[in-house]
Design a protein around this nucleic acid. Sequence first.
RNA 1: GGUCCGGUAGCUUAGUUGGUCAAAGCGCUCGACUCAUAAUCGAAGGAUCGUGGGUUCAAGUCCCACCCGGACCA
Length: 513
Amino acid sequence: MPRFYLTTAIDYANGDPHLGHALEKIGADVIARYHRLAGFDVHLLMGMDEHGQKVQQTAAALGVTPLAFADEIATRFQAMWARLNVQYDQFIRTTDTHHKVGVQALIRRIAERNPDDFYERSYRGLYCVGCEAFKQDADIVDGRCLLHPTRTLEEVEERNWFFRLSKYQPFLQALLASNPSYIEPESRRNEILGLLAQGLEDVSASRSRLDWAVPFPLPLSSGERQGTYVWFDALPNYLTATGFPEAGFETRWPADVHIIGKDITRFHAVIWPAMLEAAGLPLPKQVWAHGFVQLGGERFSKSAGVKLDLGEAIDRYGVDAFRYVLLREVPFDADGNFSWERFEERYTSDLANAFGNLASRATAMVEKYCDAIVPAAVQPAAESGDALDITAYHAALDGKHGWLLHDGLSAVARMTARANEYTQATAPWQLAKDAGKRADLEQCLASLIRRLARQAVLLSPFMPDKAEALWTQLGAPGKACEQRFAALDRLDVTGWRVAKGEGLFPRPLPPKP
RNA sequence: GGUCCGGUAGCUUAGUUGGUCAAAGCGCUCGACUCAUAAUCGAAGGAUCGUGGGUUCAAGUCCCACCCGGACCA
């Protein structure tokens, strides 16, 4: 069975999961579920990034150990992924012993193979005593730290280990020239190409005053031991999760795709492949940078109070409706918008009116006209008009042309619309009045059930529970998630006993929040 | 300040290499139907394609400048 290893960004243990996290995790889950239906041995990795001063400081402020704090945050994230029905195969935490061992092994391996790649250099920056951290320009306003505006920033110099990233510029340029799909979508690749054209700076790999970190395995010439700086700790999680450095990690590594947010493209497209090349390890096959979700047209932020309560969004119409609307509304290759208004519109038009009602009318007619037993279809290919949409669906999800999950949903929506048109045009309720048209009636109803069954399977990566619910209502054997795309063409619905149940996506709407 | 991405009907978006390219879905209006979750089907209306220049016989589609939104870098 072919393997498929995909990862999401590990989330920083500083705050609760929000809409942006949810988009990435649900998207990755859809891709994973799709590949299971396509017959792959799928491994979806998710996890937490738990080191660094912010975690340490927040924990200290709460009077708990950093690890206890990280445990709490990890528990909250995992609980949210469970609610969102995100089915990961592995959850890594950078505080896992194995990860720390792996990070150190990777650094040593680089140092052994390319002794020049790590070197000592002094780092100079603006240091905030309040934060006990160096501040970047984004965190500085009027020469003051945003969080501690009453204190003055000090210019501090320290010696650190640096990684000779600049050395890998030709390698990275050649990589993108020979393998353009290494970074997708194209807009993000262009960004990186521009960055490479400007020239790369070496990056620091260790920092002093970094106590809550993986100890950097090489001591400085002064004897000082420092903590591993963020990217050398976080990025290797994709590798250490496979068991590295222990033998056997190669069975999973390299990853097929890293699903990340566009804000961290640079680290995944530049630093990470350079690190792997330095270590003589295979590169991941692709980095996919999705866009951001805006909320009602505004960027959500804690400070501005623009945020969406994920629990509320899930409770609104159920987790599957939320997953559907989020991925239908937000293109997976660009920024998108989410609002309660759109949620209502999408739920009502796509799910309740089009899809749910199609299931309702079709099962009702089989019950009414055929004693609930799906008749044998005379022309099993009556729905051949769906072929193009099924092709489009796979093109959106198989990764060969990017991961355009929203296009996959559009394709299924067209199939649903076509089935409703077919129903209207054939008017089985009229055929039922004429015994001489019995064959036409049975043909129509069998076709509708077949279409619904196929749509249930195609939608199951997006809406796992609803797909199963429909599968059951149709009287289909087994489970929707156990089907294989390859066998879907030949799906025979003859003799299924339908059982029209509760509406899949009921109206009327509950009151607005 | 630099780089990149986006700015097309009320909303969300399609629009290969310039020439039926002004398109689709939702919403709104009208008509049809009654199996169904007052759902469905059909039809109509609706855009000076961010702004201003330029290239061209011909430009959302190429060039320049500017405005707005976003990401990254400095």
